[in-house]
């Protein structure tokens, strides 16, 4: 579980201070899946870095399973818009990278088995010996997802993971993502610019205001199942979509007034 409790953050540059987060609080329950949307540059990536312990909050508390996050910890998996695969390793070796960092008692064979299981799940099993540059953008992102899950993290953080993909590939990956969620048990926080992605994947959507970001709005999606894209076109989903669009508009309008 992830908890933000009155978190403030600012970046100081040589000339000025930039307040990025202001009294931000939210809560993602264990095995929950929350999406964060908000205007560009409002501080969403900053939230992911705080969860990962890559930076410390200026004020307030960031908690994982009730413990304050002070430094990076190995029970976290991360994936970004840029798949950042290592070109000198093949796909299998790329996926296994976290197991070289995180302490574990697995034998080489067990590591490979685990990686292949994941690759199979995302449909990449035939490409385990290929170099990243030989794969399409969508395939690379699938490999990157496998890498973020190989050490079976309790928390998965995705920062606009499908942002650079075309609409069809993106929808494919949404389905892959829900498959991964069924087989694993992790708490997930996804940052996205795509409202439909947020509705499809998440149990709760959190809307951040413009910078400095604070809670503006949040809504539970309350869907029955997650195994096909049709559910995006039900009246319920359309209603959610409209509500969230209004909220984003509001966030951007306030931001313009402030500047």
């Amino acid at each position: 579980m992830i908890e933000f409790d009155g978190v403030y953050h600012k970046f100081s540059t040589k000339t000025s201070e930039l307040q990025v987060l202001k009294n931000l609080s939210f809560y993602v329950p264990k095995s929950g899946f929350s999406a964060i949307i908000g205007p560009s540059g409002c501080g969403k990536s900053t939230v992911t870095k705080l969860v990962a312990g890559l930076i410390k909050p200026y004020n307030g508390r960031v908690l994982l399973n009730g413990e304050m996050v002070q430094t990076p910890r190995s029970n976290i998996g991360m994936a970004f818009q840029n798949p950042v695969l290592l070109e000198w390793r093949n796909i299998l070796q790329n996926v296994m990278l976290p197991l070289e960092i995180v302490k574990n008692n697995l034998t080489d064979l067990q590591k490979k088995e685990r990686a292949r299981e994941l690759l199979n799940l995302v449909g990449l099993i035939e490409y385990e010996n290929n170099r990243p540059s030989e794969l399409s953008g969508g395939m690379r992102q699938r490999a990157s997802l496998c890498r973020s899950l190989i050490h079976q993290p309790e928390v998965l953080i995705l920062d606009e993971p499908f942002g650079a993909l075309d609409a069809f590939t993106r929808e494919d990956l949404w389905l892959t993502m829900s498959r991964l969620r069924e087989t694993g048990s992790f708490t997930c926080l996804i940052i996205t610019h795509d409202i439909r992605e947020a509705i499809f994947l998440a149990d709760e959507v959190i809307v951040l205001s413009g910078r400095p970001a604070t809670n503006q709005f949040s809504i539970k999606t309350e869907k029955e199942n997650n195994d096909n894209l049709d559910q995006l076109y039900t009246p319920h989903s359309t209603k959610l979509l409209n509500i969230l669009r209004e909220q984003i508009k509001l966030a951007r309008k306030n931001e313009m007034v402030e500047r």
């Binding site: 870095k49 990962a52 312990g53 890559l54 430094t71 990076p72 910890r73 190995s74 976290i76 991360m78 970004f80 950042v84 990278l97 976290p98 960092i101 995180v102 890498r147 050490h151």
Partner: peptide, 9 residues
């Protein structure tokens, strides 16, 4: 590139 490993400690 740094963050994927740094996040794991």
């Amino acid at each position: 590139y740094r963050d994927i490993l740094r996040a794991l400690g």
